[in-house]
Amino acid sequence: MSKKKIELIRKHSVSLYIMFLLLSCCGFLTYFMMSPEPTIIKPDGSEHFVVTYVKPALWVLMIKEISIAILIAVVLAFTIEGLAHTRREIEQEDLSKSILESVYKKYIPEKCFDEVDSCLLRSNVERTDYSIHYKIREITQEELDELGLDGNGEHCVVEAFNRYQVRNLLDENVTTHLKFNIEVPNEKEYTDLTEIYSFNYNSVEKINDDEPIKATNHGDCHYSFEANLKPHQTVVVEAKARTVKRIIDQEVWSSRLPSNGIRVTVEAPPHFDVHCRANHSKPMRKTGPNEWNLSYGMFPHQSIVLWWNGKCSK
């Protein structure tokens, strides 16, 4: 049975429950309206009042009992229907998984299927409109002065600008962790230039240039944010970071969420020879000078590799 038909049946069931509930309320209202009022009298010569009650008519009592029965039936039916619906959803999920396992485990190794199941099939969110822009530039004299270095012409600054959308795939609230990290240079004297200096979540600034995330002594520079998404909500994430690389070097960028592709652009000095490829079953398409696009789905932990040579003739 299709989801639309199931949803239609549920709507009709709720309508029936509401109708019987209203009928029960009308019965109670009729009972209270038709029940005789108690009579208060004071016998002659007595200081006390006497209250007398007249028993309601039989049909009024029957309406009361029928209304109570209808109310109990509606509550029980609504509760049982809710439990049955939850059970059906669980059974459908288990059935879908069993079918997938029985089909795919015949053709791919079990451990490979388990990896696909945990990384992809059980994912509650997806990433779309994924774009990364790299800017490769020379280290400025001001930055060298801050580091107390003279510079040897063998290093450059690489800035990464990351932007994407995250969408909740479920009909319920979802909590997911959005992580962003930048590689720390091997040379400790350049560590102070490595930082995450901007992170915006749906136009809300979580990190700014005044209080950036600096690299640690253990060679790590990352930021993690816990995002709470409403059903089918889409949010925009933007992050900026910088690090120091050699003028002949590479950068590896790995995806942590299922994505519908990625776009990479690079801004570099004219004498830099820049290349890019994807660790993927499909090749990246070069769409312009220092611009590449992968318009295929990306699994978590698949990546793109960017490498350059800045020693080409100027």
Rank of each mutant, 00 (worst) to 15 (best):
S118L: 13
K135H: 09
E205M: 15
S203K: 09
I68Y: 05
E267C: 08
E138R: 14
W308E: 00
T52I: 02
F180Q: 08
E251A: 01
Q165A: 06
K245M: 15
T30Q: 04
R285S: 08
E126R: 13
N309M: 08
K111Q: 09
Q233R: 15
I70Y: 02
V184G: 02
D114E: 09
I247Q: 12
M1E: 10
L23W: 11
V237Q: 00
D44S: 14
G45S: 12
H85G: 03
K230G: 14
T175A: 10
S13W: 05
M284F: 08
S15Q: 06
K314D: 12
I9G: 06
E89Y: 11
C312H: 14
Y164H: 12
N208A: 14
V74M: 14
R246M: 07
Y53N: 05
Y223I: 15
G288K: 11
Q141W: 03
P258M: 14
P56H: 03
K42E: 10
D192Y: 00
I68M: 12
V60W: 04
E93V: 15
V51E: 12
I90S: 08
V235P: 02
T175C: 09
G27Q: 02
I70H: 04
H271W: 11
V204T: 04
M19Q: 03
L76P: 03
P38F: 05
F113M: 07
G27E: 00
L61S: 13
A239G: 03
Q302D: 13
K11V: 14
F49V: 13
T175Y: 10
H155A: 11
D44L: 15
Y53W: 05
S295P: 01
L120T: 07
K286A: 00
K286I: 05
M34K: 03
P283C: 14
Q233N: 14
T39P: 00
E183F: 07
N309V: 04
I40F: 10
H155D: 13
K311G: 01
V237A: 00
R242L: 07
D145T: 15
F113D: 02
V158Y: 01
E154G: 05
R263Q: 12
S123I: 09
K230M: 15
I136R: 00
I207A: 11
I70V: 11
H218E: 07
S98L: 13
V274S: 00
V174R: 02
C276I: 01
E115N: 07
K214E: 11
H133R: 00
P283D: 11
I6L: 07
I80A: 04
A241T: 02
V103R: 04
V103D: 01
T216Y: 09
S198Q: 06
I66T: 01
S13H: 02
E81V: 15
A73D: 10
H155T: 08
S67E: 07
